[in-house]
Design a protein around this nucleic acid. Structure first.
Length: 475
DNA sequence: TCCACTCACACATTTGAACAGT
DNA sequence: AACTGTTCAAATGTGTGAGTGG
């Protein structure tokens, strides 16, 4: 791992600030992001990270945890994460290695996870590492908990988006920056394939501690065989119910503190590539209390990871077309702070983007009865591949705010999350020219990765390469 | 037959309510 | 009444491997 200082040599930062005022595009360009626990991620990556996805949703391990630098302390930012297909392939585990099993399945409903602290001032994000502990992955396309939906046996990598915006509705008119970390690439699986990964997880994940002691499992098996089928069914229902409730009060408490650790200062920076496409997709329901997931639908045909690099002014008003979000129009005008503060951004005028109606939906939030519910709104997403502008991309950004901060969602109507947006066109948020289809994960030995990194233009390190991307640049 | 997937399980950890003390 | 600290039950998250179904 490289130290921050070391990285400065091969990491080109934007021109130094010229004492520009808060919120100007200049500051945007100074944002830096580093991945926490890089060693852990790397150790997984070298083996071929696998992330379990289950119907009720499963947390990631290692967790997504990042540190931010260069934010305007008093400007508000929103932090989001989404999962981008690594390629257009489906894999299978065969004889201790991953092999291509065919073409990828159509993209599931696209969702983005909104950090529960959002929006928060830059000082808040910078004072400690930001953890996405509550982010959950699911393979249930009908999931109503706002978890990020993925296909099993497919490869993904998380993208982190930092958006300067006073509230969730200003996001559309804000410039955002996207960061990805090569070592966070993983294969979504419903059951672990690589035993090395299993071992690593058990060794590092506190919740898996119970499995460190060999021999305990046989006992469970025996017990299970005695289980009454009926009672089993009942239990399951309970579990599902629980899952839907998880998250709340504690989530709030934890959200701000997740990731706060002393190693923060010493965290190594890792280079990442800045991606050049808009992440926006769908709406999200809240994540069991802590997170807010954005869900978007993406064009099936879009190729993951197409990029464009210019900072753009986010277009605006049409995004507010009332569709199902009846009162959405009552929200503050798009001309609010965000837009103005990000002046200087020029629209790169990419393909026309059919604006989707914002959808707001609420995911039942059992534990936050007194809190603002979790609205889920959707809005146009950017096509993964700008250069493929001939295509009309439509997308939905469904954002569910579980325990949104006061003032964020308080005045918005809520309704059930999964409705028609499911059928809306989706974009997979990652079209890609930047990354050609990868060989199976396990072929990603460090050396190969380096090659790839060079080839695709991002450095292998711990510092997020920066780039500025407008939200919904294709409108 | 293969294999992706589901499910309930036991255990460790985390959370939050209840209570006592100041 | 308000705050702080402690205790403990409940909730949560975890990988396992048998079972299921395509």
């Amino acid at each position: 791992m490289q130290s921050i200082r070391d990285l400065k040599h091969n990491f080109s930062l934007p021109p130094p600030p010229s004492m520009a005022g808060a919120g100007d595009s200049y500051h945007q360009g100074n944002i830096r992001m580093t991945l926490e626990d890089p060693e852990l991620w790397t150790s997984f990556h070298e083996i071929g990270t696998e992330m379990i996805i289950t119907k009720p949703g499963r947390r990631m391990f290692p967790h997504c945890k990042i540190s931010l630098f260069g934010l305007v302390p008093y400007a508000k930012y929103i932090l989001l994460v989404d999962m981008v297909p690594e390629d257009v392939l489906r894999y299978k585990w065969n004889k201790d290695k991953w092999e291509v099993a065919g073409k990828a399945e159509p993209q599931p409903p696209y969702r983005t996870y909104l950090h529960p602290d959002s929006p928060a001032p830059g000082s808040h994000w910078m004072k400690q590492p930001v953890s996405f502990l509550k982010l959950k992955l699911t393979n249930n396309a009908l999931d109503q908990h706002g978890h990020i939906i993925l296909h099993s046996m497919h490869r993904y990598h998380p993208r982190f988006h930092i958006v300067q915006a006073d509230d969730l509705y200003s996001v559309r008119w804000s410039v955002f920056q996207t960061f990805t970390f090569p070592e966070t690439t993983f294969t979504a699986v419903t059951a672990y394939q690589n035993k090395k990964i299993t071992k690593l997880k058990i060794d590092h994940n506190p919740f898996a501690k119970g499995f460190r002691d060999e021999g305990t499992n046989s006992k469970r098996r025996a017990n299970r065989s005695l289980a009454d089928p009926e009672s089993l069914g009942t239990t399951k229902k309970m579990n599902i119910s629980k899952d839907s409730e998880q998250g709340s009060p504690q989530d709030i408490r934890q959200s701000s503190c997740d990731g706060l650790d002393e190693e923060h200062v010493a965290s190594k920076e890792k280079e990442v590539k800045g991606e050049r496409y808009s992440p926006w997709g769908g709406a999200c329901d809240r994540d069991s209390g802590t997170g807010h997931a954005l869900r978007a639908d993406s064009p099936l045909s879009s190729d993951p990871r197409d990029v464009y690099s210019s900072e753009q002014l986010v277009p605006g008003q049409n995004a507010y077309q009332p569709y199902r979000f009846h009162e959405y129009g009552k929200t503050p005008s798009p001309s609010s702070s965000s837009v103005g503060s990000i002046g200087g951004c020029e629209s790169s005028g990419h393909s026309s983007f059919e604006s989707r109606v914002p959808d707001v939906a609420t995911v039942p939030d059992p534990d936050s009865s007194s809190k603002p519910s979790a609205p889920e709104f959707s809005h146009p997403a950017c096509p993964p591949h700008p250069s493929a502008g001939h295509q009309d991309y439509t997308g939905v950004l469904n954002m569910a705010i579980a325990q949104s901060k006061p003032g964020i969602m308080g005045h918005h109507p809520l309704y059930a999350p999964y409705c028609s947006e499911q059928s809306l066109g989706q974009w997979n948020g990652a079209a890609s020219s930047q990354y050609p289809p990868h060989p199976p994960p396990h072929h990603h030995l460090p050396s190969e990765y380096s090659t790839q990194a060079v080839h695709h233009g991002y450095h292998h390190g711990n510092v997020g390469d920066w780039s500025q991307y407008p939200l919904f640049s294709y409108w």
